[in-house]
Amino acid sequence: MGAGKTTVGRLLADELGVGFLDSDHAVEEHAGKAVQDIFVDDGEAAFRALEREAVAAALAGHDGVLALGGGAVLDAGTRALLADHRVVFLRVGLSDAVKRVGLGAGRPLLLGNVRSRVKQLLDERTPVYEGLATISVDTDDRSPQDVVAEVAERLREAR
């Protein structure tokens, strides 16, 4: 959350000359409502199931950059789907994450004390991200263009 997945993903897709897809947007299109409404109306488990389906469909039919929601890889099924793919972890520190998400408006997992909640999410999720990632890139104090340049270079090296 706040790492720049959508921004960097779009720019990276342009750099590589491929399409871009955001799993949250795919879920919203399929469900006909916003992610935050799915969380409120149907619960996180229902959202994660929709998210897993969206990731599976994207991996099967989308040939480009796929940006995942920050909690997508907490689902074992989604992790299994990603196992044979290149996965980029955009690492963000607490201070930069809090600055980027602001007050967390529209982010259902940030209800309450934003800084405390972001820290908790980073602490819980970072080991999962690091375990799944084939490439990890720090984003703190860097422009999206600089992050894209490093990701693109590292993807080319990994071929």
Rank of each mutant, 00 (worst) to 15 (best):
E124S: 12
A54G: 03
L50M: 13
G2F: 07
H25D: 15
R52D: 06
T139G: 01
E157D: 13
V73I: 13
D22H: 03
R159Y: 10
I135H: 07
V101F: 04
V8Q: 06
T126I: 13
D14G: 06
G70W: 11
L11Q: 14
T139L: 00
Q120I: 01
K33S: 10
V88Q: 05
L90Q: 04
V35W: 06
F89C: 04
R91L: 01
T78K: 00
G104R: 03
V65S: 00
G71I: 05
L109F: 11
R79S: 05
V147D: 02
D42Q: 13
G4W: 10
A3E: 11
E157C: 00
R91C: 01
N113C: 03
S143C: 04
G104W: 07
R52G: 01
R48H: 06
G106R: 12
V8M: 01
A57E: 13
A26S: 07
R115L: 01
D22L: 04
A149S: 14
A158C: 02
D84V: 01
A60M: 00
V114F: 08
Q120E: 15
E153A: 13
V92T: 15
L74V: 01
G71H: 03
V87H: 03
A45N: 14
E53A: 08
L82M: 02
D138E: 15
A45G: 05
L110Y: 12
V128L: 08
G106N: 08
F20I: 03
A83T: 11
E44Y: 07
V35L: 04
D123A: 14
E157V: 09
V87P: 07
V73R: 00
R142M: 09
L155W: 12
K33F: 09
V148S: 01
E51G: 07
E44M: 02
E29V: 09
T6F: 07
G131L: 07
K119L: 15
L110C: 08
A149R: 13
T78I: 02
R125I: 13
P127Q: 10
G19W: 10
I38E: 11
G43I: 10
V128E: 10
P127M: 08
D14I: 00
L74P: 00
R159N: 09
H30V: 13
K33M: 15
A133K: 08
T78A: 01
A97W: 09
A13D: 09
A46N: 02
E28S: 09
A13R: 03
V118T: 09
E130V: 06
E28R: 10
R159S: 14
D84N: 12
D138G: 12
D141G: 10
G71K: 01
V65K: 03
A26C: 03
L122M: 13
A72H: 02
H62Y: 08
Q36K: 07
R107Q: 12
E29S: 08
R86L: 11
L21A: 10
P144R: 09
G19V: 06
L109Q: 14
I38Q: 07
Y129V: 06
E29H: 06
K119Q: 15
L74M: 14
D75Q: 04
S143V: 08
L81Y: 07
R117Q: 14
V92H: 11
T134W: 10
L81Q: 09
A80C: 00
